[in-house]
Structures are given as C-alpha cells and as structure tokens.
Design a protein around this nucleic acid. Structure first.
Lengths: 179, 179
DNA sequence: AATGAAATATATCGGATTGATATAGTATAA
DNA sequence: TTATACTATATCAATCCGATATATTTCATT
C-alpha cells in the first residue's frame, strides 16, 4: 500500500498532522500491519495537496511551532475508496529476529538468550498495547483487524513460551533444566 | 537484514544460483519471515564476490543457459557470523489485506467477500506448505522458526474462520446466519 | 530562573529496495 | 509449429527507509 493511500486512510478517520499520522503507525491502530516513516509521509502529503485530495490548515507563529493540519477533501475520499477497490498484495513479514534464531547454531549462547528474551518481551508488550486500545463504538472492520492482530501476537507469545527449550536448551540433554 | 546477509544465509546452507536463492524466499524455509527480490540479490552477489566472501563457478554454453553457482568462502562464513551477532531490528508486518478489512465499510460487499476468501485461502495454503517441509535432521533453530511460522499461520486461519461473521455479516442482525 | 531532558513537529537525504520488465534458452504438449 | 511455462540472469525508475537536522514547548529538577 503506497504512502499516499496510507495517509488518506488516517485522514478519513479524522484530521491530523504529519506527526500524528506517523504515530498512528507507531503506536496506533495501524501499528501491527503497516508502517510508514516521515520520509514517505511528508512527500505524500505534498503530492496529495497538489492533487487537491487533501486541504492544509497552516497555523504558524502564535506561540507554538508550525502545525499543519491536513483534512481529506471529497475528491480525496473518492480516490481513497478507489484505492481500496483493488486486490491487495500478499502479506509480507520481515523478522530479523527469526532469521537469527533460524541460524541459532551460529550465535553464542548469551546473544541467543538475549535475542529470545527481547523478542518475547516485544510481543508481550504488543499484546498489552493492543488490549489497551479502546474498542468502543468502533466499526466492525476495525474490531476484526484488531482481533486478528491480537490473535497473531498471542500465538507468538504462546509458541515462544512453550518451545523455549527447543531453542535455548538444544542438544544439552536434560542438563541445566533449572532456570 | 540487508540483502548481502540474506544471500550469505542461504549459501552457508549450500551452494546456489541467484535464481535458487530467490526461490528460498519465495517458497523455501525463509518464505514466511524474509523476502528479497532479484533487484537486490544480483547486486548483492556481485558485491560479495568482489569482497571475496563468495566464489562463483560459471558454467556457460554446454547446452543450457548460463548457470552461475555461488559458494561461500571461509571469510564469508566469518562475516556472516558477525552479521548475526548484532541486535535484530524489530519485526515488520505489511498487510494490505488487513488495511482493506480495517476499512470494510468503504468496500462493496462482493469485494470484501473476495478479499476475505483470498486471504483465508492464502494462509491455508501457507499452513500446508509449512507442514510439507521436511523437518528431518534439521538443526533446532530451524525447527523452532518453522514452528513459529506455523503457529502464526494457524492462528490467522483460526481467527479468520471463527470471526467471519464479525467482518462479513456486520450490522445485519441475525438475518442470513446460515451459510 | 536556569538547566536539561523529553516530547512535539516538520523536513531532507543518500542508499537500499521494490515491482515490473527485458532477454533468452529449454521443455513439453497441443 | 505454435505456444505456454519454466529456468535463469539482469536492469531500471519509482519509491521507500533509517538516520539525521532543526527548532520549539513542556515539565521536572536544581
């Protein structure tokens, strides 16, 4: 999904600044299935503005730093709808941690342990963030996707916990079973 | 993970051509957690070659098209080990389908149904591919990661199946509950 | 009131990646 | 013999990514 469509997606839910758009993909409801950085957001907002798909309200001076709030126009809403009408590209997962664990025999024990611990902690935190998102009065599609993300995170946490020994105590017989 | 490290990762498991490396990320054991295209693989192989980290065996003519088989050198193996010693970047998921389903109310019914069906079929196929991979004599790290991928895919299939109505029969009361 | 740390906010840049496409030999079958 | 598909290498423009620069505000500490 290109940066322009992602920005429109945030804006159809409410006006926002570039900074606020970024936060949606960092911590907000999109965090677990899309990502886009400032290097894509700002050029995208410029283009969308040129094309008349969004309108900018610039508030310079007045005691605070410039704050440009973007709002989607009716034309933008229509373009967004058309973007969603296409068939989606297949999902893509990029997990460097999984790559490391795949080659566990190339890592020294301490590093492997740290990778495992950090990875599990990361996913546990994600579960909590997702559970914290308020599901009140949210359209069904958003509820569905939120549940999907949660199911995914929980599956990872469960698997990691249940199969810890397979990765970390491999080949060590039943030696240092105590932790 | 940069393309060079990904290529080295494939090559430490056995010699391969650029085409074969690609297949590893398309269907092979890396398919569910990394991706890299020809546009990254060929430049990476050139650089690795220049740096003496891999060796090329060119077999031109002889009835078949050129086939360049790459093999990792001892220096390459060491560089690979060092690459793995760094802390991994956080996971990244990019799901355009989830983005569409998030905005379910913007999609017409037929398209939403198609998106749901294709998505579920895609993940069911992934589960079968993963289950088909032979786990005989595989190091523990690879078993662990294979299981992790499988757990993830199965969680998606289960959630999608159990929550179908939330997405597709939203707001329709208890009307056409029979399917 | 000064200092520093953290958060808010916009923006840019080089290098890397992506998806599409070009090219071409082999194989199989209609 | 036409064509469809697979194997195989390679390139390219458009885009994207991670890092960084800049600057103001807010808030707690000293």
């Amino acid at each position: 999904m290109d940066a322009k469509t992602l920005c429109l997606g945030v804006l159809v839910m409410g006006d926002a600044s570039g900074y606020e758009i970024r936060k949606m993909f960092e911590e907000g409801p999109f965090a677990h299935f899309q990502d886009v950085g400032y290097g894509s957001i700002y050029p995208a907002l410029s283009k969308l503005s040129e094309e008349g798909l969004i309108a900018v309200t610039d508030t310079p001076g007045e005691g605070h730093p410039d704050k440009k709030v973007y709002a989607v126009t009716p034309a933008g809403r229509e373009v967004f709808r058309q973007s969603l009408a296409r068939a989606p590209m297949p999902d893509k997962v990029r997990s460097d941690a999984a790559f490391l664990m795949f080659f566990a025999e190339f890592l020294d024990r301490d590093h492997l342990n740290a990778v495992y611990d950090d990875y599990l902690a990361f996913y546990r935190a994600r579960v909590e963030i997702m559970q914290g998102l308020d599901p009140e009065g949210v359209p069904e599609g958003r509820l569905f996707v939120r549940g999907l993300g949660l199911a995914f995170y929980q599956a990872v946490v469960t698997y990691m916990t249940e199969n810890r020994d397979l990765l970390l105590n491999a080949g060590s017989g039943k030696a240092d079973a105590a932790e």
